[in-house]
């Protein structure tokens, strides 16, 4: 690690222009070489199918008939008038709007709780990571049992405490909350780890200095931890937003979109339309509307967090 010692800021480099020029050129070439494999794979396995799906979105395409007719923007126009599609968008956004902040706060909280390096903490970290590993189908079954209106544990406990009971899975108004709880349960441990990694990048001497200055724990959190964690927070926020709006797997296993379609998210709607109703063209158009919305949201989020996250 001899290299570390010879650190010199770029601007003060006292080397010839010739060198910097070749530096720039080699950097460009290297950059291209480094992304080339990924770029090739991206084009073949993601872009090519995406473009085809985009073309399909302008067609009336019955999945099993192989007959395709070009119908222009009809699919898109009809979708904007489709009550079920609009409702599915609402369900997806409701899920995202609750999950992104709540899950973020819970996983950051867990990370702060277990931040210090100790045996006990690493034991608990492993336990909190277990929900990430366990099969979603099994977890969903257990949650179904717990939630069950007349037979579930949750209501047994609530009744014992003389609290009002809930019926997550059979009440269209609250069913999505049941999905949300399962979602957070399943993913919080994972984002806890991402936050832990971010927290560990904050130099300890900053806290020491703050301590010397007499700053309390809470002030330390707001004036050191949060600002220095901004990059990680941005990352988690963008990723969870995309994932949350694309929610489908949890819905399939927990509610199947019911009751009365109240948990049918957009991706579930797309799947149903494509593979059960077999209207592939219509489903593809729905997917691209969702795509456009999520892309815009992501770009806005990136702008908002711009000070730390480029692009």
């Amino acid at each position: 690690m001899e290299l570390k010692k010879s650190i010199t800021p770029k601007k003060n480099l006292s080397i010839s222009n010739k060198f910097s020029m070749s530096y720039g050129k080699s950097e460009k070439l290297a950059g291209i070489a480094f992304v080339l494999p990924i770029a090739v794979l991206l084009i073949i396995f993601m872009f090519y199918p995406m473009i085809q799906a985009f073309i399909i979105s302008f067609q009336d395409f019955n999945l099993i008939s192989q007959k395709k007719t070009f119908i222009g923007f009809d699919n898109y126009i009809n979708l904007f008038k489709d009550k079920e599609f609009i409702a599915s968008l609402k369900h997806s956004f409701y899920f995202a709007m609750v999950v992104v902040p709540v899950q973020g706060i819970i996983s950051l909280g867990l990370a702060l709780l277990l931040q210090k390096k100790s045996r006990i903490n690493s034991f608990f970290r492993t336990i909190y990571f277990i929900p990430v590993v366990i099969s979603t189908a099994v977890a969903a079954t257990v949650f179904e049992l717990i939630y069950s209106k007349d037979f579930g544990l949750l209501n047994a406990i609530l009744e014992a405490l003389h609290l009002p009971t809930v019926n997550f899975l059979s009440n269209p108004d609250t069913a999505m909350n049941g999905v949300i709880i399962l979602g957070i349960w399943k993913a919080a441990g994972f984002f806890m780890i991402i936050f832990l990694a971010g927290l560990n990048n904050i130099p300890a001497d900053l806290y020491e200095a703050a301590h010397v200055d007499g700053a309390g724990k809470i002030r330390q959190f707001f004036s050191i931890t949060l600002p220095l964690l901004k990059r990680t927070i941005a990352f988690v926020a963008i990723i969870t937003t995309i994932d949350a709006i694309k929610l489908s797997a949890l819905v399939y296993v927990l509610t199947g979109g019911g009751p009365s379609g109240s948990t049918e998210t957009t991706v579930v709607y797309i799947f149903r339309t494509a593979f059960e109703q077999m209207s592939m063209g219509y489903a593809s158009a729905a997917a691209f509307i969702l795509f456009a919305i999520v892309l815009i949201i992501s770009l806005i989020q990136m702008k908002l967090f711009k000070s730390d996250v480029e692009y």
Partner: peptide, 13 residues
């Protein structure tokens, strides 16, 4: 974009 597009729709292609 590749991360955002739902896989359900690129399944057939």
């Amino acid at each position: 974009s590749a991360m955002i597009i739902p896989g359900e729709v690129t399944l057939v292609p």
